[in-house]
Design a protein around this nucleic acid. Structure first.
Length: 207
DNA sequence: TAGTAACA
DNA sequence: TAGT
């Protein structure tokens, strides 16, 4: 475990190969029930390059008309989100050390060209609870900035099986994905490999 | 290529 | 401004 900044913890290879594979299969089931969709930017409607879905009581979505928000139902199917797999709740209990369970698990699927601009997670009502992120598949160049957009950002790789926790003073740090790295050390299982090369799971407390 | 600005 |  490395503390990148006060409250920001990187756990390289937190999940072993078997745990990664088992988690990936569960995420494939989530996607089967709640198909991937593309969120669009508030006001402009510009599409994000990442495709996403959610599990949990609430899911993060965005569209041109109503912007960033959490919703209890899938924007296309109108169905409630699938529940969060127990395996993920166990990881939350181990790493987040927060008394309440996560309400949202955002599933972001990246292809080779997908990126995620520097942003803060600030659509939640609860900024006390940590953000827990898990990576599967291709490595990415991840950037962790400060709490102001202009603060200098440190770049490092996130690999399959890595966990990242943003808690306490690091909870509101800007972060994003510069690019997907070309060499894939740990490919996603076939069911997910048809959809992209990297999957990121972000567990959050919302209310 | 990191950082900024302008834009819609 | 989780976009270009």
């Amino acid at each position: 475990m490395a503390e990148l900044a006060p409250g920001a913890f990187h756990f390289p290879s937190f999940l072993d190969a078997a745990a990664q594979r088992a988690l990936a299969e569960e995420i494939a089931e989530v996607i089967a029930a709640a198909p991937l969709y593309v969120s669009t930017m508030p006001k402009t409607g510009a599409p994000m390059s990442v495709r996403m879905t959610n599990c949990g009581a609430l899911g993060w979505i965005s569209d041109k008309e109503r912007g960033y928000r959490y919703e209890p139902r899938h924007p296309k199917t109108g169905q409630p989100w699938p529940s969060i797999p127990r395996r993920l709740l166990d990881i939350w209990n181990e790493l987040a050390r927060y008394p309440k369970p996560p309400e949202a698990c955002l599933v972001n699927v990246y292809d080779e060209t997908a990126r995620m601009g520097l942003h803060q997670d600030k659509d939640e009502a609860d900024f006390e609870a940590p953000i827990l992120s898990l990576s599967l598949g291709a490595d990415c160049r991840f950037k962790l900035g400060g709490t102001r957009r202009g603060d200098c950002a440190k770049a490092f790789a996130l690999s399959s099986g890595d966990a990242l926790v943003l808690s306490g003073p690091a909870r509101m740090r800007y972060h994003g994905v510069d690019r997907i790295l070309p060499t894939i050390n740990t490919p996603l299982p076939p069911t997910l490999a048809t959809l992209g090369v990297r999957v990121n799971l972000t567990l959050r407390r919302v209310t």
